[in-house]
Design a binder for these strands. Structure first.
Lengths: 384, 384
DNA sequence: TTGTCTTAGTTTCCAAAGGAAAGGTAAGGT
DNA sequence: ACCTTACCTTTCCTTTGGAAACTAAGACAA
């Protein structure tokens, strides 16, 4: 049995359990608007097939009436592999239905040739299966491959990937043949947003944005429960918003881009200029800033201001409930934080300042987890 | 009979006819995914109650098979009043189901007191009924009142209107009592976006933005068929995006706002400074610019650049299929156009430049038409 | 003229889905 | 022991829209 065979209410119940954890049938009914009878009817086959299970009683004191029975998703019912592809390496996770990582792995790529990468993905997936203790006979429910650039997840093709120099590669199909499991592909930031929407700081919110700050600066937007893709595949490009106060020229050729002052590369460059040390690394820049070097601190301050302006743009335009700030650079986050918040507050218009800013670390395997979340989503939220 | 009594498929059929004009039953089935049988079943009661009607044959040459019968919406089946409230006056229209204006009217307000304004709205609605030739016994299907500021259309309250200095005014209920017809209220720009979504340049698009340039600069965003409202009531505030190259201080206290250089007021101010004529009007500025005055032309160029940057922000963030530029200033649009387009193209990232820019005049009654569209939407797209 | 082909539209029948409401169940309270 | 309360299950029924057979209306050819 697959979830897709089940009536719409089954998906609703399952999704509610995924997002809110163990609930009683009555509570599910209240949250979804279904009648108790409908919940029971729909939950029975799900339980028979191992998708959900009863997990005991809620800890309620002095409640009158028949005690409730909690039911919860059986996360291990289906396993997924998530693989993030960069220009240099693959990062993979084996994860369950809630995108919880069970095993992780990395593989260096020695070529960006499509065939080589596809084989490497298939190899990594096999490795993850073994590392996760899966028997040969256990089937993987799905594979999610994520990659930065212009990805058409419906067609399953990478339209354009600048880092790999790929154009119109039907990657989903290629990986599916090589690895032998249903495969979906998605833009990396959108995949991360999907993971947050279902299992992270975006769960239950109608509208939120996820901003990643690192080598590049990007964002995923979830509006009304849907991650926006953009009519031409472009959306959430906060890195290239032309905000004020940025004089440096961006790699895209423009001045004013947030990325021109706040990407890891841009910060390193600016710190080198500020110190006159042409071999300064990001780590060293962070150390200098923490030690109080005023010129380097100014570089981080400028980056923080630019990011704050970008967040203000997002808040003024779409008015999210929350903006999740995520990035590799969270070790150095204290160097930006105040400037981000300050310039956000200064430039958010009216009630947009009420938008909640949340910081979230982004460990390397998190990117791959996004892939697993996208693959899992295919199972529990089919055909949107 | 109301449309809300009818099955979901009825709304689907009706909406398809509204957006695409007369279609045969078979064609409706193809577009909506319904079976021909379902279309017939659902169309019969709609026709019996006068919501739709057969309008003849399509002009097909040499087609084989039984000729099709076109059906279309009977726009006059329901009439709506739309009223836009500003600090100085009311603008009203009487419109049919397709938001086509049948009569228009304006009333000056001599007070911004809530009670006075509500009575004035009721009076204007009555006037429109008469002007549109409605009998006393004919019922208005709905009233839509639009107003700039923070409007909660679900609650029916104006949370905050800067121009009227209103806070938490339950306007929908007040107008409903005074005018005796079901009333909805909505933010003015969002209402305009609804009108474009159903009956204008946004019909059939999954994602588009409508930008209005005038006394203020705002935008409505329609994403996946829904106009976004923002979690805190703020969305589409393109006028206060902190874009680069803007030095002037905005009324909101910040520098960098688009509105600080491109609103009608800001342009007039800058033109006065440029010419040294402290009493210059907008019309005179336009004339001077058309005559070739370099300083004044530079003011318009700067405004155009800022608007273009704002459009680039919208395109980079949400990736709409189309951006509709609308405003009172379309008479002077030629003074901006090239600069808007140029700075948009320069700063739109990647495929976002493929976004279609469309210019649309915004006659004064268009604002009120938005209200009628919102009221009509309540009838044919209930309970979203 | 008449039969055939093609597409449009209608009708009948049926399966799926979920609501209504009655009934069964498990606890605490009296 | 019995009542109350809230949870859960079951039965029955309505609504909805699909499947498929059937009718309708025109073009075309024999």
């Amino acid at each position: 049995m697959t979830l897709a065979d089940q009536p719409p209410a089954a998906a609703l119940v399952f999704q509610t359990l995924l997002q809110h954890g163990p609930l009683s049938r009555a509570e599910i009914g209240r949250r979804t608007g279904l009648t108790p009878g409908a919940v029971t009817k729909v939950a029975t086959p799900l339980m028979a097939d191992g998708w959900i299970t009863e997990v005991g009683r809620p800890a309620t004191e002095g409640a009158s009436g028949r005690p409730a029975t909690l039911i919860a998703v059986r996360a291990e019912r289906a396993l997924f592999a998530g693989v993030k592809v960069t220009g240099e390496e693959l990062i993979g996770v084996l994860a369950d239905l809630t995108a919880r990582p069970l095993a992780t792995g990395r593989v260096l790529l020695d070529s960006r040739d499509v065939g080589t990468v596809v084989l490497a993905i298939a190899g990594l997936v096999d490795e993850l299966r073994t590392a996760g203790g899966m028997a040969q006979s256990d089937a993987l429910h799905g594979i999610g491959v994520t990659i930065s650039g212009d990805v058409d997840s419906r067609l399953g093709t990478v339209q354009y990937s600048p880092f790999l120099d790929w154009r119109r590669v039907p990657l989903a199909q290629l990986v599916e043949s090589a690895a032998g499991a249903p495969t979906v592909i998605e833009n990396d930031v959108r995949a991360l947003t999907v993971a947050e929407q279902w299992f992270g700081a975006g769960a239950g919110l109608s509208t939120f944005a996820l901003v990643t700050v690192g080598a590049g600066i990007g964002a995923g937007l979830s509006i009304g429960g849907r991650v926006v893709s953009g009519a031409h595949g472009v959306a959430g490009e906060v890195g290239h918003l032309p905000v004020s106060g940025v004089e440096r020229v961006c790699t895209c050729g423009n001045t004013g881009c947030v990325e021109a002052v706040a990407s890891t590369h841009a910060i390193t460059e600016q710190a080198r200029q500020a110190t006159g040390n042409a071999r300064l690394t990001m780590d060293e820049a962070v150390r200098l800033a923490h030690a109080g070097d005023p010129a380097v601190r100014a570089v981080f301050a400028g980056a923080g201001r630019a990011v704050g302006l970008a967040l203000a743009c997002v808040a003024n335009l779409i008015g999210p409930e929350r903006i999740i700030i995520s990035g590799e650079g969270v070790a150095s986050y204290d160097l930006f934080a105040d400037h981000i918040r300050q310039s956000f507050v200064d430039h958010a218009f009216g009630a947009a300042v009420d938008c909640d800013l949340v910081v979230r670390p982004l460990p390397f395997e998190e990117w791959a987890r996004g892939g697993a979340a996208v693959a899992a989503q295919r199972v529990f939220a089919p055909a949107k």
